[in-house]
Amino acid sequence: MTLLSLKALRVVLPVGGSDRQVLRGVDLDIAEGESVGLVGESGSSKSMTARAISRMLPPGARVDGRIEFDGCDVLGLGRKELRTYRAHDVATVFQDPRAALNPVRTIGDFLCEGLRLTMGMPTAMARRRAVDLLAEVGIDDGERRLRQYPHQLSGGLLQRVVIAAALAGEPRLLLADEPTTALDVSTQAEIVAILDRLRRTRGLALLFISHDLDLAASICDRTAVMYAGEIVELQASTELHRAPRHPYTIGLLGARPDIEQALPRLRAIPGQPLAAFEAPPGCAFADRCAHCVAACRADHPRLEQLSTALVRCHRAEALQTHSPGLAKGKVS
Protein backbone atom coordinates (compact mmCIF):
# COMPACT_ATOMS: atom_id res chain seq x y z
CA MET A 1 0.00 0.00 0.00
CA THR A 2 1.25 3.46 -0.86
CA LEU A 3 2.40 5.35 2.20
CA LEU A 4 3.80 8.50 0.67
CA SER A 5 2.93 9.91 -2.68
CA LEU A 6 4.46 12.94 -4.38
CA LYS A 7 2.52 14.25 -7.34
CA ALA A 8 3.97 16.84 -9.75
CA LEU A 9 5.77 18.43 -6.82
CA ARG A 10 7.24 21.80 -7.68
CA VAL A 11 9.07 24.11 -5.31
CA VAL A 12 10.19 27.68 -5.92
CA LEU A 13 12.45 29.48 -3.45
CA PRO A 14 12.99 33.23 -3.31
CA VAL A 15 16.75 33.88 -3.59
CA GLY A 16 17.97 37.46 -3.38
CA GLY A 17 14.81 39.03 -4.82
CA SER A 18 14.30 36.56 -7.65
CA ASP A 19 12.56 33.20 -7.74
CA ARG A 20 14.50 30.02 -8.17
CA GLN A 21 12.92 26.75 -9.06
CA VAL A 22 14.38 23.88 -7.04
CA LEU A 23 11.96 21.07 -7.82
CA ARG A 24 10.56 20.85 -11.32
CA GLY A 25 7.80 18.29 -10.98
CA VAL A 26 8.68 15.24 -8.90
CA ASP A 27 6.43 12.17 -8.91
CA LEU A 28 7.34 9.43 -6.48
CA ASP A 29 5.49 6.81 -4.46
CA ILE A 30 6.85 4.98 -1.46
CA ALA A 31 5.00 1.91 -0.26
CA GLU A 32 4.73 0.90 3.38
CA GLY A 33 7.96 -0.71 4.52
CA GLU A 34 9.70 0.06 1.22
CA SER A 35 13.12 1.65 0.94
CA VAL A 36 13.69 4.08 -1.89
CA GLY A 37 17.00 5.71 -2.73
CA LEU A 38 17.17 9.25 -4.02
CA VAL A 39 20.53 9.73 -5.68
CA GLY A 40 21.97 12.80 -7.34
CA GLU A 41 24.85 15.24 -7.41
CA SER A 42 24.98 18.68 -5.84
CA GLY A 43 22.20 20.97 -7.02
CA SER A 44 19.93 18.11 -8.03
CA SER A 45 17.58 19.14 -5.17
CA LYS A 46 17.43 15.73 -3.53
CA SER A 47 17.58 17.33 -0.08
CA MET A 48 14.87 19.80 -1.06
CA THR A 49 12.63 16.84 -1.86
CA ALA A 50 13.10 15.53 1.68
CA ARG A 51 12.53 18.97 3.17
CA ALA A 52 9.35 19.38 1.16
CA ILE A 53 8.08 16.04 2.46
CA SER A 54 8.69 17.01 6.08
CA ARG A 55 7.44 20.56 5.40
CA MET A 56 10.77 22.02 6.45
CA LEU A 57 11.40 24.24 3.44
CA PRO A 58 12.94 27.68 4.00
CA PRO A 59 10.52 30.56 4.62
CA GLY A 60 8.93 32.01 1.48
CA ALA A 61 9.07 28.70 -0.42
CA ARG A 62 6.17 28.17 -2.80
CA VAL A 63 5.02 24.60 -3.22
CA ASP A 64 2.87 23.34 -6.04
CA GLY A 65 1.56 19.83 -6.57
CA ARG A 66 0.54 17.29 -3.94
CA ILE A 67 2.16 15.42 -1.08
CA GLU A 68 -0.01 12.65 0.36
CA PHE A 69 0.90 10.67 3.42
CA ASP A 70 -1.37 7.68 4.02
CA GLY A 71 -3.99 9.40 1.89
CA CYS A 72 -3.83 12.66 3.85
CA ASP A 73 -2.88 15.98 2.23
CA VAL A 74 0.41 17.03 3.86
CA LEU A 75 0.48 20.51 2.33
CA GLY A 76 -2.87 21.29 3.98
CA LEU A 77 -1.84 20.33 7.53
CA GLY A 78 -2.31 22.96 10.24
CA ARG A 79 0.33 23.71 12.90
CA LYS A 80 -0.87 21.16 15.40
CA GLU A 81 -1.35 18.41 12.85
CA LEU A 82 2.07 19.18 11.44
CA ARG A 83 3.60 18.57 14.85
CA THR A 84 1.96 15.18 15.05
CA TYR A 85 2.97 14.42 11.46
CA ARG A 86 6.63 15.18 12.14
CA ALA A 87 6.66 13.36 15.48
CA HIS A 88 4.74 10.21 14.60
CA ASP A 89 4.64 9.83 10.84
CA VAL A 90 7.82 11.13 9.25
CA ALA A 91 11.16 11.44 11.06
CA THR A 92 14.32 12.89 9.59
CA VAL A 93 18.00 12.06 10.07
CA PHE A 94 20.45 14.59 8.70
CA GLN A 95 24.04 14.39 7.52
CA ASP A 96 25.91 15.89 10.43
CA PRO A 97 24.91 14.49 13.84
CA ARG A 98 26.99 17.12 15.61
CA ALA A 99 24.76 19.83 14.19
CA ALA A 100 21.63 17.99 15.34
CA LEU A 101 22.55 17.84 19.04
CA ASN A 102 22.85 20.64 21.54
CA PRO A 103 26.48 20.45 22.77
CA VAL A 104 25.66 21.56 26.33
CA ARG A 105 22.83 19.07 26.92
CA THR A 106 23.34 15.39 27.64
CA ILE A 107 22.35 12.56 25.32
CA GLY A 108 19.64 11.73 27.88
CA ASP A 109 18.16 15.24 27.72
CA PHE A 110 18.11 15.03 23.94
CA LEU A 111 16.41 11.65 23.75
CA CYS A 112 13.99 12.17 26.64
CA GLU A 113 12.77 15.59 25.55
CA GLY A 114 10.98 14.14 22.56
CA LEU A 115 9.59 11.21 24.51
CA ARG A 116 8.22 13.45 27.24
CA LEU A 117 6.76 16.08 24.94
CA THR A 118 5.35 14.07 22.07
CA MET A 119 4.64 10.77 23.78
CA GLY A 120 3.70 12.36 27.13
CA MET A 121 5.94 10.02 29.13
CA PRO A 122 7.03 10.77 32.70
CA THR A 123 10.81 11.31 33.02
CA ALA A 124 11.73 7.93 34.55
CA MET A 125 9.76 6.06 31.91
CA ALA A 126 11.27 8.21 29.15
CA ARG A 127 14.75 7.29 30.34
CA ARG A 128 13.95 3.59 30.31
CA ARG A 129 12.50 3.95 26.84
CA ALA A 130 15.59 5.91 25.72
CA VAL A 131 17.83 3.04 26.87
CA ASP A 132 15.69 0.62 24.84
CA LEU A 133 15.93 2.83 21.78
CA LEU A 134 19.71 3.03 22.11
CA ALA A 135 19.86 -0.76 22.35
CA GLU A 136 17.86 -0.94 19.15
CA VAL A 137 20.54 1.03 17.31
CA GLY A 138 23.32 -1.14 18.71
CA ILE A 139 24.32 0.89 21.77
CA ASP A 140 24.37 -1.51 24.71
CA ASP A 141 25.52 0.68 27.59
CA GLY A 142 22.64 3.13 27.22
CA GLU A 143 22.48 4.08 30.91
CA ARG A 144 26.03 5.44 30.75
CA ARG A 145 25.50 7.10 27.37
CA LEU A 146 22.46 9.02 28.62
CA ARG A 147 24.70 10.86 31.08
CA GLN A 148 27.29 11.75 28.46
CA TYR A 149 27.59 14.87 26.32
CA PRO A 150 27.82 14.89 22.51
CA HIS A 151 31.54 15.71 22.53
CA GLN A 152 32.26 12.47 24.39
CA LEU A 153 30.83 10.35 21.57
CA SER A 154 32.27 9.57 18.15
CA GLY A 155 30.45 10.66 15.00
CA GLY A 156 29.17 7.15 14.37
CA LEU A 157 27.75 6.81 17.89
CA LEU A 158 26.13 10.24 17.65
CA GLN A 159 24.46 9.33 14.39
CA ARG A 160 23.05 6.25 16.14
CA VAL A 161 21.72 8.52 18.90
CA VAL A 162 20.05 10.70 16.27
CA ILE A 163 18.49 7.63 14.66
CA ALA A 164 17.29 6.46 18.08
CA ALA A 165 15.69 9.88 18.61
CA ALA A 166 14.03 9.64 15.21
CA LEU A 167 12.50 6.32 16.27
CA ALA A 168 11.10 7.78 19.50
CA GLY A 169 7.82 8.85 17.92
CA GLU A 170 7.32 5.44 16.23
CA PRO A 171 7.41 6.95 12.72
CA ARG A 172 6.29 5.04 9.64
CA LEU A 173 8.66 6.80 7.25
CA LEU A 174 12.28 7.72 7.89
CA LEU A 175 13.91 10.37 5.72
CA ALA A 176 17.67 9.84 5.86
CA ASP A 177 19.48 12.72 4.18
CA GLU A 178 23.09 11.64 3.49
CA PRO A 179 23.21 10.07 6.98
CA THR A 180 26.67 8.56 6.51
CA THR A 181 28.47 11.14 4.38
CA ALA A 182 30.31 12.67 7.32
CA LEU A 183 31.40 9.26 8.65
CA ASP A 184 34.29 6.85 8.04
CA VAL A 185 33.66 3.91 5.69
CA SER A 186 33.58 1.23 8.36
CA THR A 187 31.23 3.40 10.46
CA GLN A 188 29.15 4.05 7.37
CA ALA A 189 28.71 0.32 6.90
CA GLU A 190 27.48 -0.02 10.50
CA ILE A 191 24.97 2.83 10.21
CA VAL A 192 23.62 1.53 6.92
CA ALA A 193 23.27 -1.94 8.43
CA ILE A 194 21.33 -0.47 11.37
CA LEU A 195 18.96 1.40 9.03
CA ASP A 196 18.45 -1.76 7.00
CA ARG A 197 17.68 -3.83 10.10
CA LEU A 198 15.30 -1.24 11.57
CA ARG A 199 13.43 -1.08 8.35
CA ARG A 200 12.93 -4.85 8.37
CA THR A 201 12.10 -5.29 12.05
CA ARG A 202 9.83 -2.26 12.30
CA GLY A 203 8.38 -2.30 8.80
CA LEU A 204 9.65 1.25 8.45
CA ALA A 205 9.61 2.90 5.05
CA LEU A 206 12.86 4.63 4.17
CA LEU A 207 13.76 7.44 1.82
CA PHE A 208 17.54 7.25 1.62
CA ILE A 209 19.19 10.29 0.09
CA SER A 210 22.75 9.89 -1.14
CA HIS A 211 25.22 10.91 -3.80
CA ASP A 212 26.48 7.31 -3.89
CA LEU A 213 24.63 4.94 -6.23
CA ASP A 214 26.39 1.87 -4.83
CA LEU A 215 25.51 2.76 -1.27
CA ALA A 216 21.86 3.41 -2.16
CA ALA A 217 21.71 0.11 -4.03
CA SER A 218 22.98 -1.76 -1.00
CA ILE A 219 19.87 -0.95 1.08
CA CYS A 220 17.19 0.36 -1.27
CA ASP A 221 14.56 -1.68 -3.10
CA ARG A 222 14.22 1.01 -5.74
CA THR A 223 16.44 3.94 -6.67
CA ALA A 224 15.47 7.26 -8.21
CA VAL A 225 18.19 9.27 -9.93
CA MET A 226 17.71 13.03 -9.78
CA TYR A 227 19.19 15.62 -12.07
CA ALA A 228 18.50 19.36 -11.97
CA GLY A 229 15.40 19.16 -9.80
CA GLU A 230 13.62 16.22 -11.40
CA ILE A 231 13.75 12.44 -11.46
CA VAL A 232 15.43 11.22 -14.64
CA GLU A 233 15.31 7.50 -13.93
CA LEU A 234 13.54 5.24 -11.47
CA GLN A 235 13.77 1.47 -11.22
CA ALA A 236 14.64 -1.43 -8.96
CA SER A 237 18.13 -0.87 -7.54
CA THR A 238 19.59 -4.10 -8.89
CA GLU A 239 18.13 -3.39 -12.33
CA LEU A 240 19.43 0.15 -12.25
CA HIS A 241 22.94 -1.21 -11.93
CA ARG A 242 22.44 -4.03 -14.39
CA ALA A 243 20.63 -2.07 -17.07
CA PRO A 244 20.69 1.68 -16.53
CA ARG A 245 18.56 3.47 -19.13
CA HIS A 246 19.24 7.18 -18.82
CA PRO A 247 22.55 8.44 -20.26
CA TYR A 248 23.15 10.29 -16.98
CA THR A 249 22.77 7.12 -14.89
CA ILE A 250 25.00 5.26 -17.33
CA GLY A 251 27.51 8.10 -17.07
CA LEU A 252 27.43 8.12 -13.27
CA LEU A 253 28.01 4.37 -13.05
CA GLY A 254 30.84 4.57 -15.55
CA ALA A 255 32.53 7.61 -14.00
CA ARG A 256 33.06 6.02 -10.62
CA PRO A 257 36.48 4.43 -10.13
CA ASP A 258 36.26 0.68 -9.69
CA ILE A 259 37.46 -0.88 -6.46
CA GLU A 260 38.24 -4.16 -8.26
CA GLN A 261 40.62 -2.77 -10.86
CA ALA A 262 42.38 0.39 -11.99
CA LEU A 263 41.00 1.53 -15.33
CA PRO A 264 43.20 3.01 -18.08
CA ARG A 265 40.97 6.04 -18.01
CA LEU A 266 37.79 6.93 -16.15
CA ARG A 267 34.80 7.71 -18.33
CA ALA A 268 34.16 11.17 -16.96
CA ILE A 269 30.98 13.01 -17.88
CA PRO A 270 32.04 16.31 -19.50
CA GLY A 271 30.88 19.58 -17.96
CA GLN A 272 29.38 19.92 -14.53
CA PRO A 273 26.07 19.21 -12.86
CA LEU A 274 23.33 21.79 -13.38
CA ALA A 275 21.17 23.16 -10.60
CA ALA A 276 17.42 23.04 -11.16
CA PHE A 277 17.10 26.77 -11.82
CA GLU A 278 19.76 26.63 -14.56
CA ALA A 279 17.92 23.94 -16.49
CA PRO A 280 17.20 24.75 -20.15
CA PRO A 281 13.75 24.25 -21.68
CA GLY A 282 14.69 20.88 -23.21
CA CYS A 283 16.47 18.01 -21.50
CA ALA A 284 18.61 19.30 -18.61
CA PHE A 285 21.35 16.78 -19.35
CA ALA A 286 21.57 17.61 -23.09
CA ASP A 287 24.78 19.65 -22.88
CA ARG A 288 26.70 16.81 -21.24
CA CYS A 289 25.13 13.97 -23.19
CA ALA A 290 26.93 12.12 -25.99
CA HIS A 291 23.62 11.02 -27.54
CA CYS A 292 21.98 14.44 -27.70
CA VAL A 293 19.93 15.23 -30.85
CA ALA A 294 17.91 18.31 -31.84
CA ALA A 295 14.75 17.03 -30.16
CA CYS A 296 16.58 16.84 -26.81
CA ARG A 297 17.11 20.59 -26.79
CA ALA A 298 13.66 21.44 -28.10
CA ASP A 299 11.32 19.31 -25.98
CA HIS A 300 11.37 18.60 -22.31
CA PRO A 301 11.27 14.78 -22.03
CA ARG A 302 8.64 13.15 -19.81
CA LEU A 303 9.22 10.31 -17.38
CA GLU A 304 8.11 7.30 -19.40
CA GLN A 305 7.97 3.57 -18.92
CA LEU A 306 10.67 1.59 -20.72
CA SER A 307 10.55 -2.12 -19.86
CA THR A 308 11.03 -2.16 -16.06
CA ALA A 309 12.23 1.42 -15.74
CA LEU A 310 10.83 4.92 -15.74
CA VAL A 311 13.13 7.10 -17.83
CA ARG A 312 13.12 10.76 -18.79
CA CYS A 313 14.97 10.62 -22.10
CA HIS A 314 13.94 10.98 -25.76
CA ARG A 315 16.71 8.66 -26.84
CA ALA A 316 16.41 5.92 -24.23
CA GLU A 317 14.52 3.48 -26.42
CA ALA A 318 16.82 3.96 -29.42
CA LEU A 319 19.93 3.66 -27.24
CA GLN A 320 18.65 0.48 -25.68
CA THR A 321 18.31 -1.26 -29.03
CA HIS A 322 21.39 0.17 -30.69
CA SER A 323 24.04 -0.08 -28.04
CA PRO A 324 23.32 -2.86 -25.58
CA GLY A 325 26.90 -2.74 -24.34
CA LEU A 326 26.57 0.89 -23.29
CA ALA A 327 26.32 0.16 -19.61
CA LYS A 328 29.39 -0.86 -17.79
CA GLY A 329 29.11 -4.20 -16.03
CA LYS A 330 29.61 -3.27 -12.40
CA VAL A 331 27.42 -5.77 -10.63
CA SER A 332 29.36 -7.96 -8.31
Binding site: G138, I139, D140, G156, L157, V185, S186, Q188, A189, E190, I191, V192, A193, I194, D196, R197, D212, L213, D214, L215, A217, S218, I219, S237, T238, H241, I259, K330, V331, S332
Partner: peptide
Protein backbone atom coordinates in the same frame (compact mmCIF):
# COMPACT_ATOMS: atom_id res chain seq x y z
CA UNK B 1 43.38 -4.43 -1.97
CA UNK B 2 43.22 -7.92 -3.47
CA UNK B 3 44.96 -9.89 -0.73
CA UNK B 4 44.72 -7.82 2.41
CA UNK B 5 46.58 -9.57 5.21
CA UNK B 6 45.60 -7.36 8.13
CA UNK B 7 42.03 -7.71 9.46
CA UNK B 8 41.66 -3.93 9.50
CA UNK B 9 42.40 -3.69 5.77
CA UNK B 10 39.85 -6.44 5.20
CA UNK B 11 37.31 -4.53 7.27
CA UNK B 12 37.88 -1.39 5.17
CA UNK B 13 37.62 -3.41 1.99
CA UNK B 14 34.40 -5.09 3.11
CA UNK B 15 32.85 -1.82 4.22
CA UNK B 16 32.74 -0.50 0.68
CA UNK B 17 29.11 -0.64 -0.41
CA UNK B 18 28.24 -2.68 -3.45
CA UNK B 19 24.93 -3.20 -5.18
CA UNK B 20 23.13 -6.42 -4.49
CA UNK B 21 24.98 -6.95 -1.24
CA UNK B 22 23.01 -6.49 1.93
CA UNK B 23 24.93 -4.69 4.64
CA UNK B 24 26.30 -6.99 7.31
CA UNK B 25 24.98 -7.02 10.84
CA UNK B 26 26.38 -4.09 12.71
CA UNK B 27 29.10 -4.62 15.24
CA UNK B 28 28.04 -3.41 18.67
CA UNK B 29 30.28 -0.83 20.18
Amino acid sequence: LDQPTHPYTRLLRDSVPRPGRRPARPANS
